[in-house]
């Protein structure tokens, strides 16, 4: 009946038993990231908050989005975007982090500015 789900809960109580703990975990993580944002950790504040975001995402993806189901096709599709995102970040940062000073943003200012502002009036 349930199509792909081999061991899916079939009753209302069963469904809540499977989903509520995940939600509770998400809420705990939300409180943790909120508190963590006010700790003095320097640059590790960002690491902490993004780490917790990844943990939340993992919970949602694995349990709510059913990647715990053994379907290699869906797992493959879910990972493909992340791999190419990694390519994009890596190679763009390869430029941004090694650029010669004169072409770093903020070092050279344009000599001319537009005669008219681009906003609004030349919309369509």
């Amino acid at each position: 009946m349930t199509g792909l789900g081999e061991e899916r809960p079939a009753s209302t109580a069963g469904i809540w038993r499977a989903t509520l703990p995940v939600w509770a975990g998400l809420m705990v993580l939300l409180v943790a990231t909120l508190v963590g944002a006010y700790l003095e950790l320097g640059r590790f504040n960002l690491v902490l908050s993004l780490g917790i975001a990844v943990a939340k995402a993992a919970l949602v993806v694995v349990f709510f989005m059913q990647l715990k189901r053994p379907d290699p096709l869906l797992r493959l599709a879910a990972c493909a975007g992340l791999v190419f995102l990694a390519f994009m970040f890596t190679l763009t940062y390869a430029d941004v982090l090694t650029r010669a000073p004169p072409t770093q943003p903020g070092t050279v200012m344009p000599r001319s500015i537009p005669d008219r502002p681009a906003a609004g009036q030349r919309a369509f």
């Binding site: 009946m1 899916r8 809960p9 079939a10 469904i15 989903t19 995940v22 809420m27 709510f64």
Partner: peptide, 21 residues
């Protein structure tokens, strides 16, 4: 995050044929 909880329950409920849920 809570809406995700109810959404997950709705999808599970539909797959299990539980109309009210």
């Amino acid at each position: 995050l809570t809406s995700s909880l109810t959404m997950a329950a709705a999808a599970e409920g539909a797959a299990a044929g539980l109309r009210r849920l």
